[in-house]
Design a protein around this nucleic acid. Structure first.
Lengths: 238, 238
DNA sequence: CGTAGAATTGAGCAATGTCAAATCACGTGG
DNA sequence: CCACGTGATTTGACATTGCTCAATTCTACG
């Protein structure tokens, strides 16, 4: 659970007691292969999932077969803490790579919300950061150019992977297909391919063999109009 | 606060005690004119705002002057409950029409989170529904056609206005300009104008003098690929 | 060696944007 | 009551971004 603790400690402080409560709220840990559905939309749920390792995405499908990825999750992210109160989801959650996942039964989360208000606020905070990322994602697909959307996505994931210790200054593993990237950015895979080539040809960054290598971070940020304010990286009591 | 209570009671039950606690958490009620900034991004906040009457939007601006509206708020919505834990926002909140707004100081919200866990979960739930609407918004701008985005927006607002008693079966007031609609849907105002004409010419709906009149709801839903599941309209203990 | 998924490329096209002008609605001052 | 000014809507002509379709190449793996 170290990834989760790192993520929280970046924004507030956890007591040892709170860490213990969180650890004891886990009922089960499972391993899943890549491309496996974790939560299907509209089914009643009795637990929330924490991603321990691997990459996961949330997505919605349209009747005509189009898909939109809503968020990409890195280790330390709760994948569906919102199901604790929503009881079911309106979208799907699936692995992108092989993953390890911890179950948090809703009744234990409820107990936390009754007995550990500060810890409950930390869980709430996590869902608020999801919403903040959603808003930035809306801005991306609504107003940024194709290359800007991709640049922004790679810039966001760089920071989020760094927070949990899974990225260096300029590199991280991102084994997504170009179809995945298209579904995340609201583009087609053909156009993603062309934009990736442009990023490569202009020396900004490359994505090869599932590894992102950033050569010119300033230019990547400029292309994506990237401002990390929406990730709320300041530590303070909440 | 009747609008808020109706909204909550649609998804769960509030005790009289909880209603009283909520009412007593208000420190101030103010009136604002149309087109007035309520919360500016990146400034420290000490209270959250509840919309009592009028329409409000949240939006982000890009350096090049483009704007993206992230959510449109109807009476009964908290405009920035997330600022309770985030402490500042990464986007702006502004009135679209003249509005009445109630202040909820963060220290009183904190007291609620310590002393009234169920009520705290209701507030949390509100932020989760914002996030669910964000996700549907991502799907709209990411994958729907221009006319589908508009149709979806009008269909969503119809239901949300109905819940708080501000829409009939087929009509509600929506005094937005075509520029506003463009900023909400990620289009240009010129194109919005053309799509609105198409909706009018095909007898689906019209928007005139700030009033939406829906003539063919089934067709509106079809065009927008509208499925209200994401609004979580089922009542159950949370 | 064969297969399947993924990446790449090219040619043509459609949806939406850009720019500019005309019209409309409405409140204000004369 | 009318002329004026401002913002909103509407329209036309044209440009562009990103999409579609189809073929080719690449890569991994049995």
């Amino acid at each position: 659970m170290e990834h989760l603790f790192r993520k929280i400690e970046r924004r507030d402080t956890l007591t040892d007691e709170e860490r213990r409560v969180l650890e004891q709220a886990v009922s089960q840990v499972i391993d899943l292969p890549a491309r496996k559905l974790i939560v299907r939309e509209k089914v009643q749920l009795d637990h929330s999932n924490l991603l321990l390792s691997g990459l996961v995405c949330r997505y919605k499908d349209l009747p005509d077969g189009q898909r939109q990825i809503l968020e990409i999750h890195v280790p330390g992210d709760f994948l569906d803490m919102h199901s604790f109160l929503l009881k079911k989801l309106e979208h799907n959650v699936a692995t992108l790579t092989p993953c390890r996942i911890a179950f948090f039964p809703h009744d234990r989360l409820k107990a936390i919300s009754e007995e550990h208000p500060h810890l409950a606020r930390m869980l709430w905070l996590g869902t608020l950061m999801d919403a903040a990322m959603h808003r930035e994602w809306i801005l991306s697909v609504g107003r940024r150019s194709a290359i800007g959307r991709l640049a922004h996505l790679f810039a966001e994931l760089l920071i989020r992977m760094q927070i949990v210790g899974l990225a260096s200054d300029s590199e991280y593993m991102l084994p997504l297909t170009q179809v995945d990237l298209a579904d995340a950015t609201g583009l087609t895979s053909v156009h993603v391919n062309r934009m990736l080539r442009e990023l490569r040809d202009t020396g900004v960054m490359s994505l090869r063999d599932g590894r992102v290598v950033i050569e010119d971070l300033a230019q990547l940020h400029r292309l994506g109009g990237f401002d990390p304010g929406y990730l709320y990286l300041d530590k303070q009591p909440r």
